Amino acid sequence: MDQSLRDAAQQGSIDALHSLVRGDPYILETIDKIPFVETPLHIAASAGQTQFAMEIVRLKPSLARKLNQDSFSPMHLALQNNQTQVVRRLLDADKDLVRVQGKEGTTPLHYVARTGNLPLLAEFRKVCPMSIKDVTIRGETALHFALNNNKLDAFELLIRWLQQTTLEDASSLWENKLLNWKNEEGNTLLHIAVSNNQPQASSLHSLFLIRELN
């Protein structure tokens, strides 16, 4: 990437961005053609340059889904750097960014479940309810991430998320499948909860299954 474009993204200079576009109308198109690359949107998202980030998304929406050389999207990097405002604005632009799979199939939802950020979990639930179905290459759901990191409040929210989705979706047979999903080590949510001595999680899991059977 051109150093001038890198600097503009780091500083959040929209004027500098447009000056570069005037000099080379294909500057963003050229970047987008590279399969895995750091883009100015990655840099802006990491630095919390919200307005610059949204201008990039307006000019070249596909860059919002681009993975860098480490297989992270701009939203992944915004989350890793606690740039919540950028995350929310990216959600406004494209709700399905929650489902973009990065390294090892990890989505932004998996990351938020692991850190236990309840406000963002609630927002992800609202804008993209089907994102809870996404599974990593290790066979881990967002619920696995919450339990493995002892984020029991997040796990409870995810259980309620499943429950609400079940009520709204008549063809919701996948919920039971998700609750009993085994990771690559063969562990279900209940196995993890028992192994980690998490009786609250075990009770929530069992209660949901009982309601489903009824």
Rank of each mutant, 00 (worst) to 15 (best):
A170Q: 09
I34G: 06
R99H: 07
Y26I: 14
Q85S: 10
H42E: 13
N187H: 15
L118K: 10
I132W: 04
Q49M: 14
L157S: 15
T188R: 00
I14R: 14
L79D: 03
G139Q: 04
D92M: 14
G105H: 04
D2S: 08
W174F: 13
R58N: 12
G105C: 05
E156K: 00
L178G: 06
D169I: 05
L28T: 01
V194W: 06
S73V: 07
A154W: 07
D32A: 15
E140N: 05
T84Y: 10
Q163F: 12
N176M: 10
H144T: 06
R211I: 00
I43K: 05
N197Y: 01
N197K: 10
K182Y: 09
L147V: 03
A64E: 09
T106K: 06
P40F: 04
F72C: 13
L120T: 03
N68H: 08
Y26H: 13
L41V: 07
T107M: 02
G102T: 00
F36V: 11
E38Q: 14
A154T: 05
Q69N: 14
D153R: 10
D134I: 09
Y26R: 14
R6F: 15
T141N: 07
A9Q: 02
R138G: 13
P61M: 01
E185Q: 11
R138N: 15
M54S: 11
L67Q: 03
V21F: 11
I132R: 03
L158Q: 15
K103H: 06
A16H: 07
Q101Y: 05
A113F: 02
L173H: 12
Q3P: 07
Y26V: 11
Q101N: 03
V87L: 05
E185L: 10
E168W: 02
K177A: 11
I34M: 13
G102Y: 03
T84W: 10
N187A: 12
A64R: 06
G12K: 04
L41W: 07
S62C: 14
V98C: 08
S19A: 15
L120Y: 02
R88E: 08
N68R: 03
T188W: 00
L63N: 05
Q10H: 06
G48W: 09
L109S: 03
Y26K: 10
R99A: 14
P199L: 00
V57T: 13
I210G: 03
F208T: 06
L67S: 02
I14K: 12
G102A: 09
E168D: 11
E156W: 05
L190W: 08
P25H: 10
R88Y: 03
S206N: 08
Q83S: 06
L179H: 06
P199T: 01
A170G: 08
T106C: 07
M75R: 00
R6M: 12
N187E: 15
D92Q: 14
A113S: 13
T165F: 04
T106I: 12
L90Q: 01
T136C: 14
Q198E: 06
N81V: 04
Q101C: 08
S13L: 07
D7Q: 15
R22I: 01
A45Y: 05
I159T: 11
L17T: 01
W174M: 00
N81I: 04
V87Y: 04
L158C: 14
E38R: 12
A154R: 02
H42F: 08
Q69I: 15
G116S: 01
N180W: 05
N148V: 15
